[in-house]
Design a protein around this nucleic acid. Structure first.
Length: 325
DNA sequence: AATGCGGGGAC
DNA sequence: GTCCCAGCATT
């Protein structure tokens, strides 16, 4: 299929983009990284997650699991603990599973093609192309949210998914596929922004058919607001935590504080503090009370034990705020 | 094609 | 308050 927009000056487009990238790329921990394990980890962490949120997790994770072999031989709970707070915990489970598959089925050698990579859990078309192009120079284009927005604006129309991928492949600079892909994403993240793009500072404005005119209509459901209350029960044995059911669709098997079904009166429990937390479509205002309310189930953990536990993001936030961890 | 999956930061 | 982020798996 032909790309929806024929760029006759493809070479000029690639040259402008890459020159801009070489000069203006942000310094990020995974910039210039060619090790497949590290590239892979960064791509998984960056799925639907902003760069700013990933940086610290990426560095800490690599300290904890420096190599593919270290990750593969680790317990899942350790991996989830390192992921705690980053969200989308299925990514951590699949990352761990994929590491074990590579060690077992590929004798520790990282698959080097997008086709093989895509067979691993947690690696779809985007991540397969990203790792293959960045770590192994395979000429495969990526389309993420940034690239899709750029392509829509370049073409001046809302492209179908298939047209976006074809267009991206048609534009790809085969001599530096990894840099080309990262340049497109960097442009989307810093110049071709969703709202108010900086068209005057754009290195490929000469090729753009819409500038900022293309309207994107998207109706997202409104976020709901809810209040929650949790008990912080401390004893000489540590802090009381409960484990979410393994069958739960949301954060299965992870540890959190015991929830209070209703806000206690000040006579029965001392109010400690409030924190805000957002998950999925709900914004929570969470009140934490000093608890002497040991639930029917649960287990006490010392701070040292808690540090190695897969906590929900909210539990981590509360325990951090309470100076337990 | 639509949905569920965390969480937060920029505006 | 709203948007949307270097997506994937499942249906």
């Amino acid at each position: 299929m032909n790309p929806p927009l024929v760029i006759t000056e493809k070479q000029a487009f690639q040259s402008q983009l890459l020159s801009w990238y070489d000069l203006n790329q942000r310094a990020l921990p995974w910039r210039g990284e060619r090790d497949a394990y590290r590239v892979w980890l960064s791509e998984i962490m960056l799925q639907q997650t902003r760069v700013a949120a990933v940086i610290a997790y990426y560095q800490k994770f690599l300290q904890r699991f420096p190599t593919l072999q270290a990750l593969a031989s680790a317990r899942l709970s350790s991996v989830l603990a390192a992921w705690s707070g980053l969200g989308y915990y299925r990514r951590a489970r699949m990352l761990h599973q994929a590491a074990r598959e590579i060690v077992k089925q590929h004798s520790g050698q990282f698959p080097k093609t997008a086709g093989e990579l895509a067979d691993l859990p947690g690696i779809g078309r985007y991540t397969a192309a990203a790792v293959a192009s960045i770590a192994f120079d395979e000429p495969k284009a990526v389309v993420d949210g940034n690239v899709e927005r750029i392509l829509n604006r370049l073409s001046g129309s809302l492209l179908t998914t298939m047209d976006s991928w074809n267009f991206a492949e048609a534009l790809l600079f085969h001599d530096r596929p990894g840099d080309f892909n990262q340049a497109m994403m960097e442009l989307g993240a810093t110049v071709c922004l969703p709202r108010d793009p900086n068209c005057l500072g754009c290195p490929i404005r000469a090729f753009c058919n819409s500038r900022s005119r293309l309207k994107v209509v998207r109706l997202k459901p409104r976020r709901r607001k809810r209040t929650l209350s949790y008990a912080l029960c401390r004893s000489s044995k540590g802090v009381l935590l409960v484990r979410r059911p393994g069958t739960s669709t949301l954060m299965p098997g992870m540890w959190e504080l015991p929830e209070l079904s209703s806000k206690p009166t000040l006579e029965t429990a001392a109010f400690l503090f409030q924190v805000r937390h957002s998950i999925t479509l709900t914004d929570y205002v969470v009140s934490v009370f000093e608890g002497n309310h040991p639930g029917p189930s649960g287990k006490h953990f010392t701070p040292a034990q808690i540090a190695r536990l897969p906590l929900t993001g909210l539990a981590k936030k509360i325990l951090s705020r309470a100076a337990v961890i």
